[in-house]
Design a protein around this nucleic acid. Structure first.
Length: 193
DNA sequence: GCGACGATGGGCT
DNA sequence: GCCCATCGTCGCA
């Protein structure tokens, strides 16, 4: 399990270093796990793509809390998205997990994602939340608590040669320079498949 | 393979 | 009442 100190760093560093780590959800005695292969960073009230741009509200309060907690929110009327809170308590920032490679709990993931084909099981932030069973009840979960059933495990780092950055996705009405900041990280080598 | 678009509900002005 | 850090389907090539 990654310690709180992992999340207590700059958000862009955490987003980069989360590549290759293992997202784990243990429920009903079963283990669902996947290697993180895509992330995005959302950094503070000045980042006009970040939900915290409007300041502290009931929804964004979790981003102002301690690092290492889950920020889970609902969007487009049907999708849950999973983020990890980063940086100092009081500074609103988080990393959105956008894609994982399924490792454990394949049968559970398959059942939840049926009849979709395997490559599309967890290749999007809404998709992986459905596959892992992550939803509003997990908002505010401490990913670093010893007894947590939702956490991230350490794993071998991913080489820079296997990593690509790009602008963040879906920011259609966000002004520059925020719209084009290269704050999306992807594993592009074949280990992501 | 690819672009357009509708679904659907909470959050915020 | 408008805006989404999305997804799956549809029509067309």
């Amino acid at each position: 399990m990654l310690p709180r100190s992992f999340y207590h760093r700059s958000t862009t560093t955490v987003a980069r270093d989360l590549l290759g780590k293992i997202l784990v959800h243990e429920q009903n005695g079963g283990r669902i796990a996947g290697m993180i292969i895509e992330t995005e960073a959302y950094v503070g009230e000045t980042d006009l793509a970040c939900h915290a741009k409007a300041g502290r509200t009931k929804r964004t309060a979790q981003m102002y809390g301690q690092p290492g907690f889950a920020y889970v929110y609902f969007t487009y009327g049907m999708h849950w998205l999973f983020n990890c809170v980063t940086e100092d308590e009081g500074f609103p920032a988080a990393v959105l997990v956008r894609g994982v490679k399924p490792l454990d709990g394949i049968d559970i993931i398959a059942a939840r994602r049926k009849p979709i084909a395997r490559p599309q099981w967890t290749n999007g932030p809404g998709k992986l939340c459905k596959a892992f069973g992550i939803h509003g009840a997990h908002h505010g979960t401490d990913l670093c608590a010893p007894n947590s059933n939702l956490f991230i495990e350490d794993n071998d780092p991913i080489s820079d040669f296997s990593v690509t950055t790009s602008p963040r996705v879906g920011l259609n009405t966000v002004p520059e320079p925020w719209k084009s900041m290269p704050w999306r990280w992807l594993v592009t080598s074949n280990i992501a498949r």
